[in-house]
Design a binder for these strands. Structure first.
Length: 196
DNA sequence: GCCAACGTTGGC
DNA sequence: GCCAACGTTGGC
């Protein structure tokens, strides 16, 4: 399985506060990301996943078995929390190519399996093995995503930055976060840009 | 290559 | 617990 995220290059993962098995999700109501963790019954939520195309592109995903992959390699707590506690089966996410010119959203993926331990963090032989992660309560979590649609017209970062409606988008505000929430409004604006 | 925006570490 | 130093991401 390919590494989905450049952060996976980072050295040693920090010590994690380990939630005992079976403990419910933390209280995110005071978090700056609280809205991303709130969900009405039956509501679908939207996300954005970054990948360096040289490592794992949308084309790579299209060629994968069942067009599906585990989103492994994420080693950032904010991104981990979204995958562990907020992303649900049936949610949709934009697939963003970073560290390439131009940076673009190239398509859409769907969450097929909710958060479960990232096997690369538990595999001693894997470059992204995390010796501090307790196998009984793994620190790092991934979801499975499936390619749904490739945009005929990828949406560039610069085009998104030019749109007032997207000024507060997490991708624009916090460039380095590899998994970010997308509001329903932002989702609609970007979809329209892709269909122009 | 540079550097802003972070997240983490470690000295105190 | 504070915060300076350091490392990383990723756009420019």
């Amino acid at each position: 399985m390919a590494v989905k995220k450049a952060a996976a290059k980072s050295t040693k993962a920090p010590k994690a506060p380990k939630a005992p098995k079976g403990e419910s999700a933390p209280d995110y109501s005071k978090s700056p990301w609280a809205a991303a963790f709130r969900r009405k019954a039956g509501e679908r939520k939207y996300w954005l996943l970054k990948s360096e195309p040289e490592t794992f592109s949308f084309d790579d995903l299209m060629k994968a078995p069942a067009k599906t992959t585990g989103w492994d390699g994420v080693r950032n707590y904010a991104a981990r929390n979204f995958m562990r506690d907020a992303m649900k089966k049936g949610d949709l996410a934009f697939y963003y190519h970073s560290s390439i010119d131009p940076q673009v959203i190239v398509g859409i993926v769907e969450v097929m399996r909710e958060g479960y331990p990232d096997p690369t963090a538990l595999n001693k032989k894997h470059p992204h093995f995390d010796p501090d992660s307790d196998p009984a309560a793994p620190t790092w979590i991934q979801v499975d995503v499936k390619a749904v649609e490739r945009f005929g017209k990828p949406v560039t970062l610069s085009a998104m930055k030019a749109r007032k409606e997207l000024a507060t988008m997490a991708l624009i505000r916090i460039g380095r976060l590899s998994v970010t929430p997308v509001t329903k409004e932002e989702w609609g604006v970007i979809l329209a840009m892709a269909k122009d």
